[in-house]
Design a protein around this nucleic acid. Structure first.
Length: 513
RNA sequence: CGGGGCGUAGCUCAGCUUGGAUUAGAGCGCGUGGUUUGGGUCCACGAGGUCGCAAGUUCGAAUCUUGUCGCCCCGACCA
């Protein structure tokens, strides 16, 4: 039992923070609402970046970078977009500081800017402006660009990873010749996100469409992937927007078409953020701490030696050296000797992802080390003591269920360990999927829906006639919102859970982060 | 911005009601030495604080008064 982590049942919000703290993923910063992402947390972001970036390139996209600062006037060009973001923008108004003659030792802003600049909350406007310059002819289309960047939204209330004032994300921005191409792109990237969430983070998601009241400000249609957390609340894990011609009209992205007439391009944008790390934590972790899905884990295995006295120590460490060589190969084993310093030895298990195996030779007790690596969510631990050396084997422990297994030395190979990791990934995904299915309940009346939301949480699936006023009323009464209109519809017609009117739309309601 | 709470060591907090025997404390963490090592050993020694800040009351303020700044939680807003 971890003594520094509050159990989920007692206080879920505190548990979440305790897990992050124990695993040293992030820390609060001196600036309100901002966080420091520590190396163990940033490594997860790097795993996300590596995997997604490959998927973006596999679908024809390239990376570029646009500036952090945006002229304030840009934001006013698209009416809905202003509405959506004006309230949460940080604004740069001055270009230097000077000594304040009235308050010794203080500085005050000086040299006001002619036009204030906003720190990007998202880059549609800046990128729209540039695309207008780049696009002249249908031959210039499509433009398929992604950028990895930070953005800032001045949120009222923040939570590590889930909602911070500044966050890291990627934003894809594309421009197309036809509405159909833009629609295909929007759905293609939604699929990329859904598959990525499942394959890398082992999180099952529901693909769907946002209702008008939840869609991105300035989009024609917002598609999303929604995930369910262990406390029964939903989390929007990624969005893909079909922006239609809204931004091309606002920013004048025009091209001369095949028919020699001037036309507006069709644009899309899509993004996921460091919030995914929060989703990963809440989807998989337990009362003992973080549980990392193997493909996102910077360290896949921690080896813990157990011994009494110097004699046993050298025997055990010698055996571990043999074991490590079998897992990473002799070449990596010897180059690691020159590379690593300190009492935790590091070996690359996967030279492409740089996922590591570590040997913890610190001078602390084995129990200490067990908790150390357990709380950090490392998928496997291998314990090696005199008993194991005598038997020519090692004790393999799985993080997800603490299952133990004695494994003979000759069994250790890269392929064998890779299959062990895949097995864990699969089990984590299946567990999360079972949870999602178990916590998706049907309601045919509003009363029933309220009961479920109050007593059980999770997704409530029901027939519904989307309408902003109705949704606002339901939110006020139940705190739940339409998470999405799932792409996977049963077809046919039903009775709206709220109005009683006939509708062809089935939706998922839930309380959300 | 509304409603609540809190600022004392790196962290969690005690001390404040009733001002002075506390030379400002405890636990955890940290450092050194020893001991121990199959799920958080034990012991000794040690480092570390202008008690958020400012003014006031008083012979005397962590403690009382006023002001001020900051943070956290609950709501509205939100990837």
């Amino acid at each position: 039992m971890a003594k520094n982590i509050k159990p989920r049942k007692e206080d879920y919000a505190q548990w979440y923070l305790d897990v992050i703290k124990a695993a040293q993923l992030a820390d609060y910063s001196p600036v309100r609402g901002c966080m420091v992402i520590r190396p163990e947390g940033y490594a997860i972001w790097e795993a996300i970046q590596r995997d997604l970036d490959r998927r973006f390139k596999d679908t024809g996209h390239v990376n570029a970078y646009f500036p952090l600062l945006i002229p304030q006037s840009f934001l006013t060009k698209e009416a809905q977009h202003v509405e959506g973001f004006a309230m949460e923008c940080a604004i740069v108004t001055h270009s230097k500081l000077e000594k304040d003659p009235t308050m010794p030792g203080r500085l005050r802003p000086a040299s006001p800017l002619e036009e204030p600049l906003i720190i990007r909350p998202t880059s549609e406007t800046m990128i729209g402006h540039m695309y207008a310059e780049w696009v002249q002819s249908y031959r210039d289309l499509p433009i398929l660009i992604n950028q990895w960047a930070n953005v800032m939204r001045w949120e009222m209330r923040t939570r590590l990873f889930l909602r911070t004032s500044e966050f890291l994300w990627q934003e894809g921005h594309t421009a197309h010749e036809t509405a159909q191409e833009a629609q295909e792109e929007t759905l293609r990237m939604l699929d990329v996100y859904a598959d990525f969430a499942q394959q890398l983070l082992a999180i099952p998601v529901i693909k769907g469409i946002k209702t008008d009241s939840e869609k991105f400000p300035g989009a024609d249609t917002t598609y999303c992937i929604e995930a369910l957390m262990q406390d029964g609340k939903a989390l929007q894990a990624g969005t893909s927007h079909n922006l239609g011609q809204n931004f091309s009209k606002a920013f004048d992205i025009k091209y001369l078409g095949r028919d020699n007439t001037l036309q507006y391009a069709y644009t899309t944008s899509w993004g996921v953020s460091t919030r995914l790390i929060g989703a990963m934590i809440m989807a998989h972790s337990d009362d003992d701490g973080l549980v990392l899905p193997p493909r996102a884990a910077p360290i896949v295995c921690a080896i813990i030696p157990v011994y009494k006295g110097d004699q046993e120590r050298s025997v055990v460490l010698g055996f571990i050296d043999q074991l490590v060589q079998k897992l990473v190969g002799t070449e990596e084993f010897s180059s690691a000797q020159q590379r690593t310093t300190g009492e935790i030895k590091q070996y690359f298990f996967n030279p492409i992802t740089h996922q590591r195996i570590v040997v913890d030779t610190r001078d602390t007790r084995p129990g200490d080390k067990q908790y150390h690596w357990e709380q950090r969510g490392i998928p496997f631990r291998i314990e090696v003591g005199p008993r194991d050396v005598a038997a020519g084997a090692a004790l393999l422990k799985r993080r997800i269920d603490r299952a133990k297994e004695t494994v003979p030395l000759e069994t250790f190979t890269p392929e064998w360990f890779k299959s062990k990791l895949d097995e864990v990934h699969q089990q984590m995904f299946e567990k999360a999927l079972a949870f999602q299915i178990h916590n998706t309940r049907d309601a045919s009346t509003y009363e029933q829906m309220k009961q479920i939301l109050e007593k059980q949480g999770g997704f409530v699936r029901c027939w519904f006639l989307p309408d902003p006023d109705t949704e606002a009323r339901i939110k006020a009464e139940t705190k739940a919102t339409v998470r999405c209109i799932p792409l996977n519809q049963p077809g046919g017609e039903g009775t709206c859970v709220y109005s009683g009117k006939p509708t062809q739309t089935q939706v998922l309601f839930a309380q959300a982060y």
